[in-house]
């Protein structure tokens, strides 16, 4: 059973995907300085009505194994400790211990 933070991240990814075009359209109107202030203000207020999990900043890459949100090595999608365990087991192709 994945932890709550992983579920939250899945929810955020789905929400962002579903609302991306509408959000970007409102953002385009709100940031357009050639438009009247009233129109821009309304667009900005509309932006605020979107939920928390429609914002792309709420998406965070997490470890596939443990769900840890920090120290994730993006190439493998694993947190640093899971990366070490798997590398030592030889489960990551080509990765081995180095010394110099």
């Amino acid at each position: 059973m994945p932890c709550a933070r992983v579920i939250r991240d899945i929810k955020a990814r789905k929400g962002v995907g579903a609302n991306e075009i509408a959000r970007r359209a409102y953002l385009m109107v709100a940031r357009n300085q050639t438009l009247p202030t009233q129109v821009r203000l309304h667009a900005q207020m509309q932006l605020n009505t979107f939920g928390r999990y429609t914002r792309p900043t709420t998406v965070n890459n997490r470890c596939h194994e443990t769900g840890r949100g920090r120290g994730v090595i993006s190439e493998f999608g694993l947190s640093r400790f899971q990366f070490r365990i798997k590398a030592l087991r030889g489960e990551l192709p080509g990765v081995h211990k180095a010394s110099w």
Binding site: Y26, M28, V29, L35
Partner: peptide, 10 residues
């Protein structure tokens, strides 16, 4: 799509 929707909003 974004441009189209933006123009509709305006």
């Amino acid at each position: 799509k974004i441009k189209q929707l933006g123009e509709e909003i305006i």
